Amino acid sequence: MKITVLSGGVGGARFLRGLREHVRSAIPGAELTAVVNTGDDMWLTGLRIAPDLDSIMYTLAGENDEARGWGRVGETERVSGELRAYGVGWPWFTLGDLDIGTHITRSHLLREGQPLSAVTERIASRWPLGVRLIPATDDEVETFVTVEGGELHFQEWWTRHRAAVPALGFVQRGVEASAPAPGVLEAIASADVVLIAPSNPVVSIGTILGIPGIRDAVATTDARVVGVSPVIAGAVVRGMADACLTAIGVETSAEAVGLHYGSRASGGILDAWLVDSSDAASVVALADAGIAARAVPLWMRDPATSAQLAADALASAR
C-alpha cells in the first residue's frame, strides 16, 4: 500500500509519526511518503533554514524537543548567542547548536549544486525515519505577509510578532515559476491513499497546492483524498493558523476549512474530511457539499491517540 501525505510542520509531524506507528502494526510493508511545505524556508546568516522539513525529520527520528514542540532535544544555544553579540541575523529567531549543524550541512550541499530534494534525502538518511520526505519543490518559494504599509517575511510575522500584526494576505514569492520536486507528482499519482495532514491550510497546505501541477495531481489522482481538520471546536490546535484563515476570509471552524478545500466532485481536493467529535454537527453540511465527513477524536495527545487518528483517516479512505 502506498500512502502519500501533504504536510506542514508540527501538526503534520505528529500525524506522520502516528501514521508510521499504525501502519507498522496494521499494514506491514506500506510505503509512506510525505510531500512537505517549503514556503517557510529562508536564508539566514548564510544558512538555508527549512523549518517544516526539519520538524518532521526530528520528530520521526525521536530527536524533537517535545516540550517546546520544535528543534532538537537537549539543545544548547551558544552559537545563536554569539551571533547576537556580533549583531548578525535576527535576534528573535534562535537556532540551537545541533540544529545549526543541520543547516550548515544543507547549505553546503546546496552550494555544491545539489537540489533540495537530494539534499533532504541525504540528510534524512541519518535516521531510520520510516517515511520518505520530499520537499514540495526544489525551487526557492518563500512566503511573505502583506500588512499595512508593506510586507514581512513569514518568519518575522509568525515568530517575532506571533501573528499579532493583522495580515492582509500572503504572497508566495517565486511560486509561479516553481515546479514540483522530483517524485512529488509520482507519489500523488501512484498512491492508494492521499492524506492532507492537520497542518496550516493557508501557508502550509495552501503553499504546496500553489506549486504548479500539484493541485491538479491531487484533484485527478485515482486515490481517495482524505483530510484531517487542524481546527477543533472553533480553535486551531497549534500555532496561529486562525490569523491566516481570517486574512483570506475563512472562518476558523472545521466545517469552513473543509469547505475551503472543497469536494473533488466540485473542483476541490477532498473526498473525505475528519472533524473532531466536538464538531459532529458539521458533518451534515459537509456531506451536502459532497465531502464525506466523519467525526472522530482528533487530539493527538500521545503516540496511541496519534496512531488511532491515522487509522481513522485510512478507514475513511476505504
Rank of each mutant, 00 (worst) to 15 (best):
W299L: 15
A310I: 05
G89R: 05
L274I: 09
A265E: 14
L53S: 01
F154L: 11
R72M: 15
A197D: 04
E186W: 03
W273G: 00
I248G: 04
L259F: 04
F144V: 13
L129F: 07
E151Y: 10
R17S: 14
R78T: 13
R106E: 10
V202R: 01
A287G: 14
L32I: 01
D52K: 07
S80H: 15
T4I: 11
V231P: 00
G174T: 10
P303K: 15
V141F: 09
R238I: 00
G74D: 01
E21P: 07
I269F: 08
G174R: 03
E251I: 09
I3P: 04
A272T: 02
M42Y: 11
A181K: 06
N37M: 08
D139M: 11
R84Q: 14
L19F: 05
A223I: 01
R132T: 12
A292V: 14
I3K: 05
S7W: 06
R160F: 07
G290F: 08
A13Y: 00
H260Y: 15
R162I: 12
S125Y: 12
A281R: 08
D40Y: 00
G11V: 01
A164V: 06
V73M: 12
I100A: 07
K2A: 11
A293R: 06
M240L: 14
L298N: 00
L44E: 13
V231C: 03
L245F: 02
G8F: 00
D40I: 01
V194P: 02
D65A: 04
D276L: 01
W273N: 03
V119N: 12
T143C: 12
T305A: 03
H161I: 06
N37S: 09
T4H: 04
L168S: 10
L245H: 01
G210H: 00
A254K: 04
A272V: 02
G89N: 08
R14T: 03
D54T: 02
A247P: 02
W299D: 15
W273F: 07
L44M: 12
A67C: 13
L309V: 11
G149P: 08
E140G: 06
V88Q: 15
R294D: 08
A289N: 03
L245I: 05
A317V: 03
I291S: 04
